[in-house]
Design a binder for these strands. Structure first.
Lengths: 146, 146
DNA sequence: ACCGTAAAATAGGCGCGCCTAACTTTCAGT
DNA sequence: ACTGAAAGTTAGGCGCGCCTATTTTACGGT
C-alpha cells in the first residue's frame, strides 16, 4: 500500500498477441476474483455470482461490484442476472495469478518444508506482492534445489 | 485484504511485562510508520513528523493522522506540535517489524541472489504479509544454506 | 518584543473494498 | 399460468489511508 505494487504486468510468454496492453494494474482483491472465477469455470460450467461470493467469503453485493469493475476492464462478461465468464484477456491474467500462486506454494512446501495448508494460504497473499522478476528467482532456485 | 493477516502479534520475548496485551493488530501502513520512526530515532535524536512524511513519501497530514492512531494505541508519544517518540511497546513492535524485514531481505539476497535494492523493496512488502511461523522456515533455511 | 517562515494540525474529500437492508428478477414446482 | 424462494442488484454506509487547502502554532532573527 502506498507504493504502486503490481509492476507493469509482464505477460512474459503467451500474451504478446493480446489487444490493448493497457497495462491493467489490478488490485489484490480483483486478482482474487479472477482467480476464483477461473477455478469455478473449471469445476462448474456456468459460474454464478453466489459461488464466487461463497468461495471468497464475501457478500453477494461485493461480488456484483467487483464484477462490474472487471467487466468495465474487459476481463469478464456477465449479463445482469446471468452467468459469469472470463474474457480471453481475463483468462490470461487469471492464469498468470494462478501460475504465481502455484510457484510460490511449491517453493514453500518443497524448498522450505512449510506444511501444505499453510503454504496454500501464504501463497494466496504473496501472489499479489511478489514482482515477476523476484518470483523468477524463487522459481529458478526451486528448479535447482528440487 | 479480506483475510485477517498480521496474526496475533507474537511479542515473543521482552514484552511480557506490558500492560494490556491488546493483541494489537496493526495494519501494514501503521507498521511502516513504526519502522520509519524507529529508524529516525536512531539517526536523529528528536524525530519530527515531517521527517516521517519524507521517509514514507506521504503528506504531513497523513503523518498526523497515523500518529494519532499510534498514540491512541500507546505505541507512540507525541505532544502536539512537538517531537515524536516510540513508547516501550512501540519499540518492541517496531523492532519486530525490522527483524522480519532484515530476515526477509537477507534470505532474498543470500539464498536467492536477488539484487540488494530489489530485495530491500520486496522485503518492505513481504514483512507485512509473512506470518511468524512461515518466516521461521525462511530463517531456518537461510541458516543452513548460507 | 515582534514578525515571518516553517512545521504541525484541522477540515473536508476521494477511492477502494467491504457490509446490511431492501428491492427486483428469475425460475422451478404445482 | 402463478407464485414463492433464491439469486442478483441497488441504495446507503463505514473504515482506512491517502490527499489538498487552510488555519494554527512555534521559533529564530532582527
Amino acid at each position: 500500500m502506498r507504493e504502486q505494487l503490481q509492476s507493469e504486468a509482464q505477460h512474459d510468454s503467451a500474451v504478446a498477441a493480446s489487444e490493448a496492453a493497457h497495462v491493467e494494474v489490478l488490485s489484490a482483491s480483483l486478482e482474487d476474483y479472477l482467480k476464483a472465477i477461473l477455478r469455478l469455470e473449471r469445476a462448474s460450467q456456468a459460474v454464478r455470482a453466489s459461488e464466487i461470493a461463497e468461495q471468497l467469503e464475501v457478500s453477494r453485493p461485493s461480488v456484483t461490484g467487483a464484477l462490474k469493475t472487471l467487466a468495465a476492464r474487459g476481463l469478464v462478461v456477465h449479463a445482469p442476472y446471468g452467468h459469469v465468464a472470463l474474457t480471453e484477456e481475463g483468462v490470461v491474467i487469471a492464469e498468470e495469478v494462478e501460475r504465481r500462486h502455484v510457484a510460490i506454494r511449491d517453493f514453500l512446501t518443497r524448498v522450505l518444508g512449510v506444511p501444505e495448508e499453510k503454504a496454500e494460504t501464504t501463497a494466496c497473499r504473496l501472489e499479489h506482492v511478489l514482482e515477476p522478476d523476484v518470483l523468477a528467482h524463487f522459481v529458478r532456485y526451486a528448479a535447482k534445489h528440487a
